[in-house]
C-alpha cells in the first residue's frame, strides 16, 4: 500500500503540471529556454538548429516515442535478466 501511495504521489506530480491553468505561471518550457538561452542571448549567442533537426511538426514526438520504446525494451530485457519474476505462492502449491 505504501508503494501504491508513493507511485500515486509521483503520478500526481506529473499530472499537476499540465493540470495547472495556463498563464498562471509559465508555458512549461524547459529550463534550456527559461534559463540557459536567456543568459546566452544576453551574451549575444543564440541556439543553432540541430545538425539533424527532428524538431519539425510531429516528427519530434515520433522520435521521442521510438526512443522510449527502444530504451524501454533494452531496459526491460536487462531488468528481466537481472530480476527474474518471482514464482507466485499459488503456483508452488500446484508443483
Amino acid at each position: 500500500m505504501k508503494r501504491a501511495v508513493l507511485i500515486l504521489t509521483f503520478a500526481g506530480l506529473l499530472l499537476a503540471g499540465p493540470a495547472c491553468p495556463p498563464g498562471r505561471a509559465a508555458s512549461w518550457s524547459g529550463v534550456d529556454e527559461t534559463v540557459i538561452e536567456k543568459f546566452a542571448e544576453k551574451a549575444g549567442r543564440t541556439a543553432r538548429e540541430p545538425f539533424i533537426n527532428t524538431d519539425q511538426g510531429d516528427l519530434l514526438l515520433f522520435v521521442f516515442l521510438v526512443a522510449g520504446i527502444v530504451g524501454g525494451f533494452i531496459g526491460g530485457y536487462n531488468f528481466r535478466v537481472l530480476f527474474p519474476p518471482r514464482r507466485d505462492v499459488g503456483d508452488e502449491k500446484h508443483v
Binding site: I7, L14, P18, S29, I36, T46, F64
Partner: peptide, 29 residues
Amino acid sequence: FAAVVAAIAGVLASLPAPAFAMHISEGLL
C-alpha cells in the same frame, strides 16, 4: 492500479510538444 495510473500520467505529461531540452543547446557555446 497505481502503476497503470503512473504510466497514463507519464504519457499525458509528455504530450505537449514544445522542446523540452534541458542541456546546453547546439551552437550556444
